[in-house]
Amino acid sequence: MASIHLQNIVKRYGGFVGVQNMSLDIADEEFLVLLGPSGCGKTTTMRMIAGLEEPTEGQIVIGGEVVNDIDARDRDVAMVFQGYALYPNMSIYENIRFPLRMRGIPASEHDARIRKAAEMVELGSFLDRKPGALSGGQRQRAALARAVVRQPQVFLMDEPLSNLDAKLRQSMRVQIKHMQRQLKVTTVYVTHDQIEAMTLADRIVIMNKGAIQQVGTPDEIYSDPANTFVAGFIGSPPMNLIQGTARDGRFTAPGISVPCPRFVHGQVTLGVRPEDCHVGGDNLQGQVYGVEPTGDVTYLTVLGGTNKIEVKAARDYRSDIDVAIGIAFDPAHLYFFDESGQRIRGAA
């Protein structure tokens, strides 16, 4: 129902830069996921969109209207807070009802809406309790219900599922996505969970130290990382990053030798995903450092020179440690980054 534009947003706390020069266009009805390490400015960005924090510089536009000077209560944004922020003196029922009362929604609609929201987060039987009498995960779901009970212009969700067990998280994830598609509300979602990011997002924004590293669809982020930060952040286990030298169409590092495009030369970093490494071959010659069977796949760590390379091996792969081993890298999926960490792309 509303697009969001951030134009050169800067947030400074005294001398500390929380968010630096952030520009981002979020389309109407888009599901955007913010991903990044702790302290990179995700919450700060959300709070600025919500109107709880004023940007030091830059403009925020929601639904075509500059909202910098519009108070949080008039922005029609619903937020799930990282710390839940449930009203301790009210029952869960009253908590979920609060935004309905404040937004002047007719009292006759309240009950049905509250029950529907509570049903969605599977809290139907806890409505009479005070937040203090709920577990962490139940509180988190109550906070989610309070946000989705009305239909705002924008949903902001700050790690709304971080405290749930894997099963519940999976089912909530599907429900959130379904609801977002149904209500068609522009959503900004923060998570540390890559699966969540990959499955929910129309586009993902990767942030680090207050700056956007890359914006793209989950596929783009995964298969076309813009720099070593994104490459090393996405994937589990993340991409192997190996420093070495490229000369005359060949990249070498201790124990490693692979062909590379001719425009790659000098001190560079090679990136290769564990799933693009295969046992048997001679791109990497090293010793088995460790073998970790997980059930559906076996993680193999190979020591080549001083580098430890992660390899996703077949489910039934087993080996003793310190055995000599050769690994092949899939030549179609090699990434090269320059000394500053930026991706080296073709046609240079």
Partner: peptide, 29 residues
């Protein structure tokens, strides 16, 4: 009282006076 509580009330659409009356006063009774 955590500041997030007021922030939540504000995004839910409550005025300052309402926040004081419905959130803050009960919480520090």
């Amino acid at each position: 009282i955590p500041k997030e509580l007021e922030d939540a009330a504000r995004t839910d659409g409550a005025s300052d006076l309402r926040i004081l009356w419905e959130i803050i006063i009960p919480a520090c009774l």
